[in-house]
Amino acid sequence: MKRKGWFQVLRPLSPRARLAFGTLSFVLPIVIWCIVSYVPAVWHPQMLITDPGSIDYLQVGMRMNKAAFAEAVAEAESEHKDPPKGVSSNPIYLPAPHEVATALYTAFVTPSPTKDSPWLHQSLWHSMQVIFWGFVISSIFGVPLGILCGTYAAFARLNEPFIEFFRYLPAPAFGALAVAILGIYDGPKITIIVIGTFFQQVLIIANTTRKLDGGLVEAALTLGTKKLALLTRVVIPGILPDLYRDQRILLGWAWTYLIVAELIGTTSGITWFITQQARYQHFANVYAAIMMIGFIGLGTDMVLALIGRRLFPWDRTLTKNA
């Protein structure tokens, strides 16, 4: 059987095809966005008024549905007055790529409109700190507990049934409680991220630990390894690469709780920026900020993957697939 080409079951791609498809995965959505934005025939359900003509309720910069605009034109023409002029456009909530790109740039170089309020980069930095502390606190407790649950069945039975129950409670539901206990600043926000991450973390890491090859433990036993050394010299080093991968996935999870967390108490960080801009209908800025989160998330993950490859040179799963 010929095993070349793009659609081979469980076969890696050639490096060139990998690069091509990887680039396409970003280019394709952008191309679609461009087509919707710049080709009037595709969607453009509205008219952006460039000249109100004789119609007094129209203003430059207003958007209206094409049907209403056609009515306005017909009305003006029937009265032999100046018809309004406009260009077809998308609704305000879908800005064009170039508008978002400009917003991305100007958001960083322009100070925020109100005094005392933070610049975009300050908001972002604040968000990253909240994520960082939430994740660190969760990991300090979650990682050791997960490993213990995975290693000792007694630990697992003692903790996992309750954690299984608790992980279904939505983290944001604890918002009001967290504010009552920890005040309105960063305390409750970090708490929400911890609650959102911790319970999943324990269960995922416990499962990863249970997947360790039992043969390695038996080999260590026959070499004379005693209880605690079994944990520190076999179980922990044995699961480290998988544990690291789990942590990367869980960090992504923590980001998804960020926006909800930042709405609790005083709105802060990138969420404050997004809600402010949305209030003034600066949707280009909103998209710019959302993308920023994506860039930061993807960027950190790529850096962590790179570090992982350095840390665990023996790990074979890293070079397989992906």
């Binding site: 043969g215 080999a219 070499l223 080093p237 044995g238």
Partner: peptide, 25 residues
Amino acid sequence: GMVFQGYTLFPWLTVKKNVMFGLEV
């Protein structure tokens, strides 16, 4: 001592450190 069919060498240790394992513990 025991030798298993599935090798069971510790993948995170070099060959030398695998041999050192039993001595160290």
